[in-house]
C-alpha cells in the first residue's frame, strides 16, 4: 500500500483526514456493536424463555391431542377440527432496534372461546376443549417464537457485519493509514534532509568558487604590480 502512496504534503493531509474520519467511525461502530450485543443479550434471554415455553406447549399439545385421539377417536377429533369457522390471521409489521429492522407479528383469532371453535358443546367433551386450547397456546408460542427468533437472527447478522466493519477499521484500514502517514512523514523528512544537504553543498561550492575567484583576482593584481616598474625603465 505504502508503495502506491505519493509522499506529498497534500497526500499526508488527506491521509490525516481519513485517519480522523476512520477513528471516529471506529468509535461509533464499536458503540453500535456493544449496543447491539446488549440488545441481543436481552432478546436472547427472551428467546430462550420463549423456546422453553414453546417446547412445553408442544409437549402439552401433543399429550392432549394424543389423549383426545385415544379416548374420543381420530374421527371425532378430526370432525371437531373440521367445524372450525374462523382461521387464525397473522399480520406483520416492522420495528427498528438500533438500525436493525425486525418484524413485529400481530395475530388475531388464535385463542378462541368455546363458542368460537365451531363444534357443538353438547356433543363434545373437555378432552376436545383441552386439545383445542393446548393447540391455540402452541400457535401463540410459535408466533411469538417466530418474532423473537427472527429478530435475534437479524440482530446477530447485524452484529456480525458491524464486528467485521470494526475489525476492518481496527486491523486493516487504520494500520494501513498509519503506515502510509508514517511513510509519507519519513519521506518528507528525508526530502527535507536532502534539501538541506543539497543547499549546504551548493553553499559550500559557491563559497569555494568565490574563494577561487578571489585568489585569482589577487594573483592577477600581484602580477600587474611586478610588470609596471620594468616598463618605466
Amino acid at each position: 500500500m505504502a508503495k502506491d502512496v505519493k509522499p506529498t504534503r497534500k497526500e499526508l493531509m488527506q491521509i490525516e483526514d481519513r485517519i480522523d474520519l476512520s477513528e471516529r467511525g471506529h468509535g461509533t461502530l464499536e458503540k453500535k456493536r456493544d449496543g447491539l450485543i446488549m440488545e441481543f443479550m436481552d432478546i436472547l434471554d427472551q428467546a430462550q424463555d420463549v423456546r422453553g415455553e414453546l417446547s412445553e406447549d408442544y409437549e402439552r399439545a401433543q399429550k392432549t391431542i394424543n389423549m383426545a385421539r385415544a379416548m374420543e377417536g381420530d374421527v371425532a377429533v378430526r370432525g371437531a377440527a373440521a367445524a372450525l369457522q374462523e382461521h387464525p390471521e397473522i399480520t406483520t409489521e416492522s420495528k427498528n432496534i438500533m438500525g436493525v429492522v425486525v418484524p413485529q407479528i400481530e395475530s388475531s383469532k388464535v385463542t378462541k372461546s368455546l363458542d368460537q371453535r365451531g363444534y357443538g358443546i353438547m356433543g363434545t367433551s373437555a378432552r376436545i376443549d383441552e386439545a383445542a386450547e393446548a393447540y391455540e397456546d402452541l400457535l401463540q408460542s410459535i408466533i411469538l417464537a417466530a418474532e423473537v427468533e427472527t429478530a435475534m437472527k437479524k440482530m446477530l447478522r447485524e452484529i456480525e457485519t458491524t464486528k467485521r466493519r470494526v475489525n476492518a477499521l481496527e486491523f486493516k484500514l487504520l494500520p494501513e493509514l498509519y503506515e502510509n502517514k508514517e511513510f509519507i512523514e519519513q519521506k518528507l523528512e528525508e526530502q527535507e534532509r536532502e534539501e538541506i544537504f543539497r543547499l549546504k553543498k551548493i553553499k559550500e561550492k559557491k563559497e569555494a568558487e568565490e574563494e577561487a575567484e578571489k585568489a585569482e583576482a589577487e594573483a592577477e593584481a600581484e602580477a600587474a604590480a611586478v610588470e609596471e616598474p620594468v616598463a618605466s625603465d
Binding site: A83, Q85, D115, Q116, G118, Y119, G120, I121, M122, G123
Partner: peptide, 17 residues
C-alpha cells in the same frame, strides 16, 4: 347469520337428549 356450525350441532344434540 353466524356461519358457524355450533347452532346446528347443538340442535342435533339437544333433539337427541
Amino acid at each position: 347469520q353466524t356461519g358457524a356450525l355450533v347452532p346446528l350441532e347443538n340442535a342435533l344434540d339437544r333433539a337427541f337428549y
